[in-house]
Structure formats: C-alpha cells, structure tokens
Write a protein that binds this DNA or RNA. Structure first.
Lengths: 220, 220, 220, 220
DNA sequence: GATGAATGAGCCTTCATTCAT
DNA sequence: GATGAATGAAGGCTCATTCAT
C-alpha cells in the first residue's frame, strides 16, 4: 500500500466497526440528540443523522428505539457512577477530603457537559412515568446516597458537631442536582464555577470547619 | 338570562359549558395525562378521554397541541405564582416569618400534589430543548428568586450574620426543587413531611436562630 | 335544494359512512386485494387504494392489519356458512334433495366467485401456520361436515346401500374443495359447470339411484 | 477426486460444501421455514438461521429471494414427479395395479411428510396470484393428470364399465389433494392411514371390482 | 357548540440486498 | 467461499389536524 492510500485509510472513518464501537457511537449520538431537541422529539432518523449512519443500522445494533434509549440511560448512569467512584478512591483519608471529592466529581467535565446535563434532565422528566427508567437511575442513586450519608456521618463525628447526616447528605445531593437544573433551564444561567461555589456554600453551612465557598479549607 | 334559561342551567348538567370552564377542564386533563404517562406519550386523544370529551373538542378550544401544552404550563406557573404570592401576603412582618411562609407554600397541597409535581418534572425535562417553555418557567422563577433573595438578605441583616444572600436563596430554592424531584422519582420515596423537614434542616444551617428541623422557631 | 345538487348528492359516494358500512367496504376491498396480488403481498395501502380511501382509515376501523385479515376471514366463513345453511333450509324433505342442495350451494355465485375462491385459497395456504386462522375455518367446517355426514347416512339408509357415511361425506367435501382449487390454479381451467358435473360424478358413484352427472335424478 | 481430497471429505466436516449441496441444504431449510411460519412470514434471515448458515450466503447461492422460492417450488415439484413416476415404473402391468401405484405413491413418506404438505399448501395459496408459480405446478399436474386419465380409461375398458375417465381421474386426484389439505388444516386431523382409506373408498366407488377401502383387491 | 369519521405526514420497524473484510 | 455489518426502500402504525354532520 502506498502512502496516499495509507493516509486515506487513516483519515476516513472505517466503513465497518466492531459491534461495541458502533453501539457507543450511536449512544453518543442519542445523548446529543436528546440534548438538542429533547426526549419527545428524538427520532431514530435524527439519531442516525447525527451519527452519520443509516437509520437501519440503529435497529441492527439496538433492536428497538426503547432499547436504544434504555441503554443510553444505562450508559449515562454507569459513566456517572464510575466518575464519583474513582474520584472517591483517589481522595485522601479524611472525611472532609472525601466529601470534597464527591462534590467536586459531579462538576467534572466528563459528566457535567451541557449535553450530558440536558440528557439527564430529559430522562428525569420522563422517568416519573417510566418505572424502567426509575430503576436505572434508582440503583445508582442509592449507592451514591449511602456513600454521601456515611461520609457526612464521619465528618460530623470528626468535627464533633450535632446533626442529621441523612438529611444533610440529602440537602447536598439535591443542591447539586438543583444547580445542574439551573445550568440547563435558566434564561440567564450562571456558570459552572458559580454553581460549584453555591454547593460549597451549602457545605460550609453544615461544616464550617471544613469548607468555605471556595471549596475545602486548607488544613492548617 | 331569563328565568327559563336559568332554571335549565341549574337543574341539568350543562350541555354547553362556558369557554373558560371547558378550557380549565381540558388543562386539568392534560396535567393528569402528562403525570400518568409522561410528556412524550401524551396525545390529544388521551387528554380527551381523560376529560371525558370528544376528540375534536380539544382542537376546537386550543387550536393546536402545542398551544394546549403551552397553556397548560402557563396555568401551572400562574397557579404556582399565586400560591406563594398569597402566602407571602398573609405572612407576618418579620423576615423569618416571611421566609417560613415561602418555604411552606411550596408544600401546600394545591401545588404539591403528585400529579402537579409529575407534570412539573415532565415540563422541566422538555424545557431545556424548548425556549418557549423556558420562558414560561423562567419569568416566574425570576420573581420568586428575587423575593427569596430579598428575604434572605433581610434575615441576614436582622440576625446580624454574614453570608451571601443570593447563594443562600439559591440553595434553599434548589433544595425545595430537589426534594420535589425525590418525591417523584425515588423508588422508596420519603413522604412530604420528611421532605419539608429536609428543607428546614437547610434553613436551620443558614439561620439557626430562626429555624430548626420542625420549622420556624417559636419567637420567645 | 335544487335538482342539480340533489343529483350530485345521489351520485357521489357519501364522505362519511357508518362504522358498519365502512367495515364491510374495507373487508370487501381486502378480499379483492388478496385475490389479486396474494396474501403475502397484501398491504394496507393497497387495500385502501382499492377501497378508494386513505390508509389511515383502515387502522381507524380495524386496529391492526392482523385484525383486518382475521375479520375478513371471519366474514368469508360466515358468508359461506349462511349460504349452505339457507340452501339446506330451502331444500325438500328427502335426503337426496338435501344432499343436492348442499352440493349445489357451494357453486352459488355468492360464494363461488373468482375473487372469493382466490381469497379462500390464500387463507388456506396461510392457515397451516396460523392457529388463529385454523380456528376460524375449523368451527365452520365442523358444522358443515356433520351435516354432510348425517345426510349421507340418511341417504344410505333410504337407498338401502352399504357404505361408510363419514368417508363418503369426506370424499364429496374434498371433491368440492378440489375443483375449487382447480378453478383457481390450473393454467387452462375448466369452467364452473364442468366443476359441478365432476362433483355429481362423484355423487353418482356413491348414490347412483339419486344422482347422475347432471345433478339430482328426476324423482319418477 | 484424488485420495487426499477424499480423505479430507470423509474425516472432517467439510468447511466448503459443493455448490449443489449448499443449495439443497438451503432449499430444505426453506421448505421447513415455510412449513413452520408460513410463506408470508418467511424471511431470508430465518431460512439462514434454520440452515445454520450466515445471512449473506443465501444471496450468494440464490441471487434473490424470489429465485430461492421459485427453485424451492421447482425442487418440490420435481421430487413429487419423480416419486409417482418411479412408483408407476415399478408397478405391475394391469391398469388396477398401476392406479393403485399412483394412489399409493402420493402417501409415500418422502412426499407426504408434514413439512412437505405444509409447504405445498403455502405455495398453492400463493400460486393463484403468481403466474410463475402456477407454471411450476401446472406442468407437473398436467403430466400427472394425463397419466391418471389414461389409467382410468384403461381400467374402465378392462372392467367393461361405462364412465367418464377424465372426470373420474379428476375426482381421484382432488380427493388426494383434499385429504392432504385436511391433514394440514383440520383441528383434530385424522391420520395418514385414514386419509389413504378415504381415497380408496373413492376408488372403490368407481371401480368396485378392483378396490376396496383397504386398497387393491387381491387378484383371485 | 359538539362529535367522530377521515386524512396524511412522519415515525418505528422489517428485511432484501450489497459489500468490505 | 463465507461472514456479518451496513444500506435504504417499503410497510404497519400513530396521531395531529380537518371537516361534514
């Protein structure tokens, strides 16, 4: 093979991809489509168009539209879980550092991009009338909640403060979800940095020794 | 209206309702339908069925499906606005009492029924890809936010605490929205009372002199 | 209304028909379509085209294609049953006259038209892999078979001949079905009259006192 | 074929079968598929699945689906023709023995298996709207009919009976086809033995000297 | 006002056919 | 030869919208 052909092979997308690669490509296109035109108006034709593929291929890799959407949600949930799990593993030993890692993880670009947030919102909106979506989200949330509660309980112990770890964890979690929603739906949205600061303001209210609006207090 | 007609109206269920009454009936059916089967699967036929009316009547009162949905959202937003506005007007003079009134208003049965919450979620999910919906929600939120910020600023002044009223107000608002979402989407949801306590836990964190988990502290 | 308009009203098909009338019209179009292009190539669009209606209307009156086809078969079966039942009721008292009535009924234009026969063939071909079709045909056949056996048994008694009524009835029935098939599938088909004579040749073989190739022997 | 190749063929399952063997394998799978799910629902994918081969191979050996089906019908027809031809060649010299051979041939397991009958029914059902299928069946039937008529004419001569050989032959043929159909489509089908007896009851009616319900009378 | 039959655009899905590997 | 990913035409079905009654 001469250089010209070699270059051509490298630059053009291959005609045939492995099953897994195509599935990921289509799921990515689905997220983008939902983010752009919403869940209700998402069609297989549009997903295929975004992916640059024929619409018949979508049904080849995912038997039905229903499955494509379910697996897209599953992929989002799995990506989200992996993100905070890994952040937690990389965190320092103290409860404050671990809480900081979890709060910060939710604002990592990988899970907090506009497209991802829009897709999440759309699925949330549909989930309340779809038990199958609730299950997908629910099991993930459950694990996240439990961890957050444990860490809050630890931090209360460490700081010697009184408080209800379950409710504090809940406030922190819904604050994150809430500023996410704001980032999506407000007409003049504040930016991600301000969103994160807002979360830390909440963290500071419960744990003033550990946090301020900028994040984790330096350990002096 | 003469006596004969008056008698007819009173004794028989009216065959012809006024324009406004029919519109409200259809909007109510729309909310219920969205809550039950979701925004994406809501059809005019189903709305008509829920309302107990004929198929064609929906298009007679609302020219298009788009208008029916938009006006439904408008009605929800207006109802919500009236609810907190009136609660605020009925509240006592102090900042703590007014904040309490606003927090409590969002859990009034009129705006916090399962059907209402589900419908809200559905519209939120769709709003991020529909500018027209964002406007409907946005203008309302804007007024609500401003009031909440004012009250928080007043309360900070009254209690002599330092703090960022804008971010505190934001945390309180998204906490309310967040527990609303939980009430809708969690597999084993806590109840409305626990949701409200969670909000007060957040309020207590910022204003311990004024609130505890049960609500407004008695003014001694 | 002036004469011109009156005439127009009478000649043009009405825009809206009753449910039952439309259903019959669509079933008739289905029979014609199956006869013309076969079961496998029958599409709702083609049925609608033959009926001169929009394809959406087919799904309005019959929820699915499956139901349209099933009800078409049901209508064919009901029409067939009514035809031989009424022929039997109009027949004379003797066994020979009743057998003659049944044999003759199957060649009545109402049930023996080319379109009807083609449609029957198509359903038979599909029935062997469709239990639901078999049931539709089966219950009808059962009643027909029982009657034919009874009459053959009566005729054997009357003529004092030995013979197996069940098998004789079966031969007569399948002979009718067979010449039907011939009328449909042979390249140079003989005509309906020759088909009927063939059946009478079979009848004559079993009951020479009662039949000859032209039909029932005149009672002398 | 040299020794090396022979050994390879015998010891290993051949990875590459000859064209002809693959074609037969696919035709057999087509018959089975049509028998199981019907003509209308037969797809190339299903045929390939039944044959245990890949999807694309079907189009490699038969350019189109149309050709696969046509050649399947051709194979069925050829198999059927060979069956009665060989039976006739093996039969004794008398007309009765030859007629018996033909009647018996149609119930030989090779052509009278459930799968074969189902496939025949399906093709018959479709043939009335497909000239190309009618030709395939027709030419075969024509030869079969002619032979049957000749034999019936011979037998009439031998027995000295009056009768119309053409119509008698037709009754015998359609009786066979009819009991075939019964074997396929009746809810509580009688068995092949009873089907064959029914045919002989018809034969006995025309030729009582030669046949009874059990078959050919022993020549005493 | 009210009804529900009728229309047709657009969607999901199937599947014969093609083709790169 | 053989595989299976990829394409696109066509079909069934849904549903917003229209309109005669």
């Amino acid at each position: 093979m001469n250089d010209a052909k070699l270059a051509e092979t490298e630059t053009r997308p291959p005609r045939k991809l492995s099953r897994e690669a195509r599935r990921e490509q289509l799921i990515e296109a689905t997220i983008e489509t939902i983010a752009r035109i919403g869940y209700a108006r998402t069609t297989l034709t549009e997903v295929a168009r975004v992916a640059g593929l024929s619409h018949g291929l979508v049904n080849f890799h995912f038997e039905t539209k229903e499955r494509l959407l379910t697996e897209t949600l599953l992929a989002l949930a799995e990506e989200y879980r992996r993100n905070w799990t890994e952040a937690l593993e990389a965190a320092g030993p103290g409860a404050a550092a671990r809480l900081d890692a979890m709060l910060r993880a939710d604002f990592a670009p990988a899970v907090c991009s506009p497209g991802r947030l829009s897709a999440w919102c759309a699925f949330w909106g549909e989930a309340q009338s779809r038990p199958i979506y609730q299950e997908q989200c629910g099991s993930n949330d459950l694990a996240y909640n439990r961890r957050l509660e444990e860490i809050c309980a630890d931090l209360l112990r460490e700081t010697g403060r009184a408080g209800d770890a379950e409710r504090i964890a809940r406030v922190l979690r819904v604050t994150i979800e809430g500023v996410w929603l704001d980032l999506m739906t407000m007409n003049a949205p504040y930016d991600r940095d301000e969103a994160q600061r807002t979360v830390y303001v909440a963290a500071e209210a419960f744990f003033p020794e550990a946090f301020n609006a900028d994040g984790l207090r330096s350990q002096t």
